[in-house]
Amino acid sequence: EINVTSHGEEQAKHWIELAKRMNLDVEVEIHGDKIIITIK
């Protein structure tokens, strides 16, 4: 399980695309200006 804290939408999209390509599950939480991505 990987937790990524992203401070930008572009960076977040990059991680989500990467996870989808690798067929991994992704959870995205938004806390103000921080985007927390959990890849399982």
Rank of each mutant, 00 (worst) to 15 (best):
E1D: 07
E1V: 13
E1L: 10
E1Y: 08
E1H: 12
I2Q: 11
I2Y: 02
I2V: 11
N3M: 12
N3H: 13
V4I: 09
V4A: 06
V4L: 11
V4E: 04
V4K: 08
V4M: 09
T5N: 09
T5Y: 00
T5L: 03
T5E: 08
S6V: 15
S6Q: 07
S6Y: 03
H7N: 07
G8W: 15
G8H: 13
G8A: 12
G8P: 08
G8I: 15
G8R: 05
E9F: 14
E9I: 14
E9W: 15
E9L: 14
E9V: 10
E9K: 07
E10A: 10
E10M: 08
E10G: 06
E10L: 06
E10F: 05
Q11T: 11
Q11A: 11
Q11D: 13
Q11N: 12
Q11H: 11
Q11L: 15
A12G: 05
A12C: 15
A12R: 06
A12H: 10
A12I: 15
A12E: 13
K13V: 07
K13P: 09
K13H: 08
H14P: 02
H14E: 07
H14V: 08
H14A: 07
H14Q: 11
H14N: 05
H14Y: 11
W15A: 05
W15L: 13
W15N: 08
W15F: 12
I16L: 12
I16T: 04
I16K: 03
I16Q: 10
E17S: 02
E17M: 02
E17N: 01
E17G: 03
E17Y: 03
E17V: 04
E17L: 03
E17I: 13
L18T: 02
L18Y: 04
L18H: 03
A19T: 08
A19G: 04
A19R: 03
A19H: 10
K20G: 12
K20A: 11
K20H: 07
R21K: 10
R21G: 12
R21H: 14
R21N: 08
R21S: 13
R21M: 14
M22H: 03
M22A: 03
N23G: 15
N23Y: 14
N23M: 13
L24K: 01
L24I: 09
L24M: 04
L24R: 01
D25W: 14
D25F: 12
D25C: 13
V26Y: 09
V26H: 00
V26E: 00
V26G: 01
V26M: 06
V26S: 01
V26I: 12
E27A: 08
E27T: 14
V28Q: 00
V28M: 04
V28R: 00
E29G: 03
E29P: 00
E29T: 12
E29S: 11
E29F: 10
E29K: 10
I30F: 05
I30V: 09
I30P: 01
I30H: 02
I30N: 02
I30C: 15
H31V: 11
H31W: 13
H31G: 06
H31T: 07
G32I: 09
G32H: 11
G32L: 12
G32F: 11
G32A: 08
G32V: 06
G32P: 08
D33W: 08
D33A: 06
D33L: 06
D33M: 09
D33F: 10
D33H: 03
D33T: 06
D33S: 11
D33R: 05
K34F: 14
K34Y: 13
K34L: 14
K34P: 01
K34R: 09
I35F: 02
I35L: 04
I35E: 00
I35K: 00
I35N: 00
I35T: 02
I35A: 01
I36G: 01
I36F: 02
I36D: 02
I36Q: 02
I36W: 03
I37S: 00
I37P: 00
I37G: 00
T38G: 01
T38L: 04
T38N: 04
T38F: 04
T38V: 07
T38K: 06
I39C: 06
I39P: 01
I39N: 01
I39V: 05
K40W: 06
K40G: 02
K40P: 01
K40A: 04
K40N: 04
